[in-house]
Structures are given as structure tokens and as C-alpha cells.
């Protein structure tokens, strides 16, 4: 009886919304960045599914409807970019050069550190596009030859790190201007970081959204070229 319900969208959607609502409550009550609702919800759901021996496939029957909304949300990021275009155009040089520097740093530091620590070739390649939004990261990895599912996991992990402590880390190292902060968090932590930036500051969130697209664009051109050099 209950087993039949697991195969319906009701289960995945209901579980996700319930866990997320509780995680938001926890986040508001504690005010602690370590209780960011995204990682808390992900960990809770993985824990529940594992404990109850429910497969990811059963969860995904409903989960895919929530994932679907990511598509129009990325389109929607064009709206704050348009309404804040004057603030963005006046900063076009810092934005473009900042993202270019961030994209290069991301590729070199992610794969370089993994290589120094003895990571296998597969892991080094899979880490290289980890700051890029999931669909772009996957198409890059398929081109350079890493493990696409591993990259997808690392992209989410990276996003959670940026969302949890990005704005706090930026303030700590003297990046207090909301535009520069949004650029840093969006370039390093794509959509999950952008979601957090939208809570912190609207202009910062709009610029973080721009960084998702531009970092994806730049990385998808640079990364295959860089790996040709190191081959």
C-alpha cells in the first residue's frame, strides 16, 4: 500500500517541501550559516532514504518536478540583470575581468590541488569545471573525459560551500561591496551561491546570476584548450 505511493510524484515532492520548510525554520531560529537550508535538506533526505531503504529512483519520480523549475528560474535571472543594467554596465570591466580571473583560478586550483594530493586522472578532470552550473559542467566533462556524475556531485558540493559561507568569507577578507561579493559568490558557487546572494543583496544577487552564465561560457571555451596543452 505505502510501497505503491513511493512510486508517485507525491512522495518526492512532499518529502522535499516538508524537509525544506523544516530546514528553513531551523535556519531562521538558529540564524547559523551552518544550517543553510539547502545542504541541511539534502543531508536529511539522503539520511531518510538510506535509513528507510528507499531508492533514489523512487524519490526522483517527484524530485524531477522540483528540478524542472530550475530551468525557468535560470531564465528568470535575466530579469534582475535587465532592471539593474545601469549598475552592471558601469562595472563591466571589473565584472568581465573578475569572472575571467575566477574561471582560470577555479580550473587551475581545483585540478591542481587534486593532482598534488594524488588524485587519479579521472578525479582531476572531473574537478576542473566544479564552479560551473551543472548542465554546462557536465557537457564540459563529457568533452574532456572525466566522470560526469562525479562532476554533478562536486558542483552541488561547491555550491553548498559557497552558499553557506560565501558572503561571510568575503566580508572577512575585505570584500564588502555587494557587487564584488555577488561576483565572487556567483563565479565560485553558481546557482546555489546565487540563491544565497539574492537573500543578502539584490544587486549582488543579480551580478551573481550574470556570473553563472559568463563563468559557464568562459570555462567551456578555456577548459578544453587548457587540457589540450597538458595532454
Amino acid at each position: 500500500m505505502i510501497g505503491d505511493l513511493l512510486g508517485t510524484p507525491l512522495f518526492g515532492i512532499g518529502l522535499t517541501l516538508l524537509c525544506y520548510a523544516l530546514a528553513q525554520l531551523l535556519y531562521r531560529r538558529t540564524g547559523s550559516i551552518f544550517f543553510n537550508p539547502v545542504p541541511v535538506t539534502i543531508v536529511t533526505i539522503i539520511g531518510l532514504l538510506t535509513a528507510l531503504r528507499i531508492s533514489y529512483a523512487d524519490y526522483a519520480v517527484g524530485g524531477k518536478y522540483i528540478l524542472f523549475l530550475l530551468g525557468p528560474s535560470v531564465v528568470a535571472l535575466g530579469f534582475p540583470l535587465y532592471t539593474r543594467r545601469k549598475d552592471i554596465l558601469v562595472r563591466k570591466a571589473p565584472i568581465l575581468i573578475g569572472i575571467l580571473a575566477g574561471a582560470l583560478t577555479s580550473i587551475l586550483s581545483a585540478s591542481g590541488l587534486a593532482w598534488l594530493l594524488g588524485g587519479s586522472r579521472d578525479v582531476v578532470l572531473s574537478l576542473a569545471p566544479k564552479s560551473v552550473t551543472t548542465p554546462i559542467a557536465i557537457s564540459i566533462v563529457e568533452k574532456i573525459g572525466g566522470i560526469a556524475p562525479l562532476t554533478a556531485a562536486l558542483v552541488v558540493l561547491t555550491g553548498c560551500i559557497g552558499a553557506m559561507c560565501g558572503p561571510e568569507f568575503c566580508r572577512l577578507i575585505g570584500i564588502k561591496d555587494p557587487a564584488a561579493m555577488g561576483l565572487a559568490v556567483g563565479t565560485a558557487a553558481h546557482g546555489i551561491g546565487t540563491a544565497r546572494m539574492l537573500e543578502v543583496n539584490r544587486l549582488g544577487g543579480a551580478i551573481a546570476g550574470l556570473a553563472i552564465g559568463l563563468n559557464g561560457l568562459i570555462t567551456s571555451f578555456i577548459l578544453p584548450l587548457l587540457f589540450l596543452l597538458f595532454r
Partner: peptide, 20 residues
């Protein structure tokens, strides 16, 4: 509506990590 709930839409992709 979409942007104020953007973070929520990443949850299913994150849960997908359990497969790997």
C-alpha cells in the same frame, strides 16, 4: 516567485549525490 525559492530547486540534484 521563482527567484525567492531558487535554493529549493537545487535539492533534488543534491540528493542525487547519494547514487555516487
Amino acid at each position: 516567485l521563482l527567484l525567492s525559492h531558487l535554493a529549493l530547486f537545487f535539492v533534488p540534484a543534491g540528493v542525487g549525490v547519494m547514487v555516487y
